[in-house]
Design a protein around this nucleic acid. Structure first.
Length: 727
RNA sequence: GGGCUCAUAGUUCAGUGGUAGAACGCCUCGUUGACAUCGAGGAGGUCGUAGGUUCAAUUCCUACUGAGCCCACCA
């Protein structure tokens, strides 16, 4: 028996251990079944890894996610479940494309158009591949027991088939349609963007009160007002009751007299401004909806590059940024400006990927119809019969309300409901190059929506690509082989737990529920476990500009992956943010080292232990007391209270086992009484062996390394496949 | 504008209808054979404020204050 080093060296251990695990194949449930580690008919336990974007490297938030998921997975495996955790990465369409564009521009001063589609996509793929390799390496460093044989990529061949199939089916069910609707247009990136990808920036801008015939209207954007010919007020507004809905009036306006129509609509806020406004339906969502309700004309004022169209008269071709001052000047010359309020705060929509200022436009795009009734074609959702009329919104609400999907912590259920109530049709087409090209083909006036290109000459595919969340919304299905009826799909779907940050509950969680229920008639997962954001020790977001980023790989290199994991697990309640500091990680490094030294002591004193020794009554009692810790840990983990479980183990290991039991054993181990000594040797080995098992999900590397050195009888070849202790 | 969360020891956080817990930090002492990445002991809290329910509230309810977050079509 070689003596252990004086202190634990994670650098020497972690990569070697991970390599051994990988080589063993036990991350793969099929291997476990084949080798008899788990029963053929064992209950399945499946988790998909929320696929990191191939835009860079992993951050502390990822590390927190990996820690929680690996704990769940490792424990399930030890409990004998047929356990799989599926790795993968996300092509992240617009995020990756804009990142590569940025690099290209910085390094070579070129745009994607200078390269052309084919060359540009090659660059993106190279970048994505490098990023992927880094990420995989990082996932392994953190000890994640992922089944690499099942690795997926949102843009690989299998996932592409799933995407095309989903699009085709949803189109046939009337859930996807092409329509002319108002969308968020980014003139800089030349693409649509979804509501969720917009950041709002507050700005002080002047607010103009303009004379519009007998009315005074308020606006923050006079440069869009050229075509305004509807004047809208609340039907109950007493100030304007002499005006009737539909009444025509002549008003003097920017380019001369206009015939305006009075419109009464309840969406007008009587308290705001003068309670009267004119509308620009082509470039404002609210205005668009008013126009839809009353079937009003809509006219485009601004082109897709942000320049004024001929309707602006001599200002045509001017960019809207410059146009404002010029329009105001014109209005002032005509005496139409009543007053200007300088202290108005306006919220500007900005594309969170790349920063272009959004300009709403009416455009022909593809949408997912969330309020359309359709006969539900499946039988797998409780409370909804096959053939029953449902909408996507209703489905999304139903599965959570009935508990078929549980959200932890529960308060996020309310947030989820609220979001669905406000949900509009989802625009899924993007005018970028990197992503799943829309599976629609055109030939003259013919249109075909299909899974594979139509036969015959002359078909061209829609050049647009799909919103990245369309493919990640299928993730639980597509990683398990859908639309094919694979064994994996039958065995592992629905997955048990989806663990992710609360910041992407809408982006991703909601959309997975939407797509999976609609397409497969199953929930994608039974429980959603939401972790908090990892912040710095002052509770601030980690960001480059603040320079407060703590890199998980740096922490793992300095203190070990195990310590890093513990620092992210202990003190982290679901849904609550974690404040992390290097001191914290250092503290848990000390615990890992303590564990190492306990082992060192035990190994030193059990060289000659007798596996058949009888436990003395007082030792039996200590063992019984230890079983309470096993029970408590088990119960806490069952209820997903991982932080409490880890804390409890920490405390027991250090302050009960090491400080009391081990200390008290010293005289017995060195004493003359052979029976006492042998009993105590066995006791220490038994309890410590079980401590290692209990701790293994939390700190897999050090426990594996130590367990392999324990002289216990009947050990499994790896701690990771040992049975979870009973009580 | 609507909603949510948090407020407990110096710090980070658990927790419970019945006279408060952990970790880190701090103080004192100890320790050359598992571990100074250590051991023994200790100090430290009227559980945000004001009401209410209750035999009893840090725990339940209401209001307020402070911190943070999310949503929303005020032109």
């Amino acid at each position: 028996m070689k003596e252990l080093a004086k202190s634990y060296n994670p650098q020497e251990t972690e990569d070697r251990i991970y390599g051994e695990w990988e080589k063993s194949g036990f991350f793969n449930p099929d291997v476990c079944v084949k080798k008899g580690i788990c029963k053929k008919n064992a209950k399945p336990f499946s988790i998909v890894l929320p696929p990191p974007n191939v835009t860079g490297t992993l951050h502390m938030g990822h590390a927190a996610m990996l820690a929680v998921e690996d704990v769940l997975v490792r424990r399930a495996r030890m409990q004998g479940y047929k356990t799989v955790w599926i790795p993968g990465t996300d092509h992240a369409a617009i995020a990756t494309e804009s990142k590569v564009e940025e690099i290209l521009y910085k390094k070579e001063g070129k745009t994607r158009h200078d390269l052309g589609k084919e060359q540009f996509l090659k660059r993106v793929q190279t970048f994505a591949q490098e990023s992927h390799d880094t990420i995989v390496n990082q996932l392994k460093k953190m000890g994640s027991s992922l089944d690499w044989s099942r690795e997926a990529y949102t843009l690989d061949e299998k996932r592409s088939l799933a995407v095309r199939t989903a699009f085709h089916r949803m189109y046939k069910d009337g859930l996807i349609y092409q329509g002319d609707r108002i969308v968020n247009w980014d003139p800089k990136m030349q693409t649509t963007v979804s509501d969720d990808e917009i950041d709002w920036k507050e700005q002080q801008t002047p607010f103009y009160y303009l004379k519009y015939g007998p009315f005074t209207i308020g606006t923050a954007r006079p440069e869009t007002k050229f075509g305004d010919k509807y004047v809208v007020m609340h039907p109950k507004d007493k100030r304007y009751k002499q005006y009737k809905h539909g009444q025509l009036i002549e008003v003097e306006w920017i380019e001369g007299p206009v015939t305006a129509t009075i419109i009464k609509d309840e969406s007008v806020d009587q308290e705001f401004g003068t309670g009267v406004m004119t509308i620009t339906p082509w470039h404002d969502k609210t205005d668009f909806e008013i126009a839809e309700r009353h079937q009003l004309d809509k006219e485009q004022i601004i082109d897709l590059h942000g320049k004024l169209l001929p309707i602006a008269g001599d200002l045509a071709g001017i960019h809207i940024k410059k146009a404002r001052a010029m329009v105001v000047e014109k209005l002032q010359a005509k005496g139409l400006v009543e007053r200007i309020d300088e202290s108005y705060t306006h919220r500007t929509a900005v594309n969170s990927r790349g920063g272009g200022i959004m300009e709403p436009q009416i455009m022909r795009q593809w949408f997912v119809h969330v309020t359309k009734e359709f006969p539900f074609p499946h039988a797998g959702i409780k409370g909804i019969k096959k053939g029953q009329q449902v909408t996507l919104k209703k489905l999304m609400l139903h599965v959570v309300k009935t508990g078929q999907v549980a959200i932890v912590p529960k308060r996020f259920e309310k947030i989820y409901y609220h979001w669905i109530q406000n949900l509009h049709d989802w625009c899924i087409s993007r005018q970028i190059w990197f992503g799943h090209q829309i599976p629609v083909w055109y030939k003259g006036k013919e249109v075909q929506v299909a899974i594979i290109p139509p036969k015959g000459e002359g078909w061209t595919q829609d050049p647009d690509t799909l919103d990245t969340w369309f493919s990640s919304g299928l993730w639980t299905l597509s990683t398990l082989g859908w639309p094919k009826k694979t064994t994996d799909l039958a065995t592992f779907h629905p997955t048990l737990v989806l663990e992710t940050g609360y910041d992407i509950i809408f982006f991703w969680v909601a959309r997975m529920i939407l797509m999976t229920t609609a397409l497969a008639g199953e929930v994608p997962f039974k429980t959603v476990y939401l972790h908090g954001m990892v912040r710095d020790d002052q509770g601030r977001k980690m960001s480059k500009s603040l320079g407060n980023i703590i890199n998980p790989l740096d922490m793992a290199r300095t203190y070990g992956a195990d310590a890093t994991r513990l620092s992210l697990l202990i003190g982290a309640a679901p849904g609550n943010d974690i404040k992390l500091s290097e001191d914290r990680v250092r503290g848990y490094r000390n615990f890992v080292n303590k564990l190492w030294n306990i082992a060192r002591f035990i190994l030193l004193h059990t060289q000659d232990y007798n596996p058949k020794a009888k436990l003395a009554p007082e030792d039996k009692k200590i063992l019984q007391e230890f079983k309470r810790t096993v029970k408590k840990t088990t119960t806490l983990m069952d209820s997903l209270r991982l932080s409490s479980a880890a804390e409890h183990l920490y405390h027991y290991t250090w302050h009960t086992f090491a400080d009391k039991i081990v200390e008290q054993s010293k005289p017995m181990l060195q004493g003359e009484d052979k029976k006492k000594r042998q009993s105590r040797q066995l006791l220490l080995l038994l309890i410590f062996g079980d401590i290692l098992k209990l701790l293994h999900p939390f700190v897999p590397f050090v426990t594996e390394e130590l367990y392999q050195k324990l002289p216990l009888q009947g050990k499994a070849p790896f701690l990771m496949i040992e049975k979870w202790p009973t009580f």
